[in-house]
């Protein structure tokens, strides 16, 4: 379980998040809904242990991520996968991109040996890479240069890259905001599949319909804090918070 407690974050003097508390259980999809620029990305980066919050605690599987030493934190960090809003692929083949997470988890000796083997050209694709590419239906693009893919394909590779090393939690930052319906459908199906395999998934989105389609719970981020957290259906049909109600009905425009 990931647990955020009384989390606040500021960039210099600018406060982005205030008193955010949230839990993410394995096997559930939590949507973080809110308008653009409200701090969803910052929240996800904090969940990924990519950024240290100015205040509050981040607990991952019972351990306070910022109270433990660096090597322990790396271990915690490696239980989480993240997909950015832009695909942000490395300048390499699709296979190397997807295998990245696996590669950095190996010892330097193995990595060196793999490097030599790939120079000779006898490097087999790890099964996990193939499986991850199957999930996003891009097995046939495995040898292609990642930078030559279309936007939708690149985002799917980015998804596969986060899935390949079998993380316990998956964080998605507006994963389908630039995608066509087919690619969106593929990613949403993959999210469902990940949940069924027991991953805890957090999706930041401004698309409320998407949140309704895929999320078990929703957390509404307005202003600098969460106005409401609860089962998606309940939040959309019967929000208790006035600002949430206004945001969902489209009255509250930031």
């Amino acid at each position: 379980m990931i647990r955020l407690e009384d989390l606040s974050h500021a960039y210099g003097d600018e406060r982005v998040l205030a008193d955010v508390s949230l839990t993410v259980d394995p096997g559930e999809v939590v949507a973080i809904i809110g308008p653009s620029g409200v701090g969803k990305t910052t929240l996800l980066r904090i969940l990924a242990l990519n950024r240290r919050p100015t205040e509050g605690t981040v607990e991952l599987d019972g351990q306070r991520a910022w109270s433990v030493d660096e090597s322990r934190r790396l271990e915690l960090r490696r239980r989480v996968g993240m997909v950015f809003q832009r695909a942000s692929l490395f300048d390499a083949s699709v296979a190397r991109n997807v295998a990245y997470g696996l590669r950095v988890r190996r010892s330097w000796r193995t990595r060196l040996a793999d490097g030599v083997r790939s120079l000779v050209g006898s490097n087999d694709l790890p099964a996990a890479v193939e499986e991850a590419l199957d999930v996003v239906e891009l097995r046939d693009k495995v040898d292609q240069d990642a930078r030559s893919l279309s936007g939708g394909e690149a985002q799917r590779v980015s998804f596969a890259r986060a899935l390949a090393y079998d993380p316990a939690y998956l964080l998605l930052d507006e994963p389908t905001s630039d995608l066509d319906p087919r690619n969106t459908g593929l990613i949403e199906a993959a999210v469902g599949e990940a949940r069924d395999r027991g991953l805890g998934v957090v999706v930041a989105t401004h698309d409320m319909h998407q949140a309704e389609r895929i999320a078990d719970r929703a957390a509404v981020l307005l202003g600098d804090g969460l106005t409401e957290v609860g089962p998606t259906e309940r939040i959309f049909e019967d929000p208790t918070d006035e600002r949430t109600r206004k945001f969902i009905s489209g009255e509250l425009v930031y």
Binding site: A48, N50, M82, S88, G101, V104, R161, A162
Partner: peptide, 9 residues
Amino acid sequence: DAAHVLGGT
């Protein structure tokens, strides 16, 4: 950041 969140040191 991708290199970092995917588990890179």
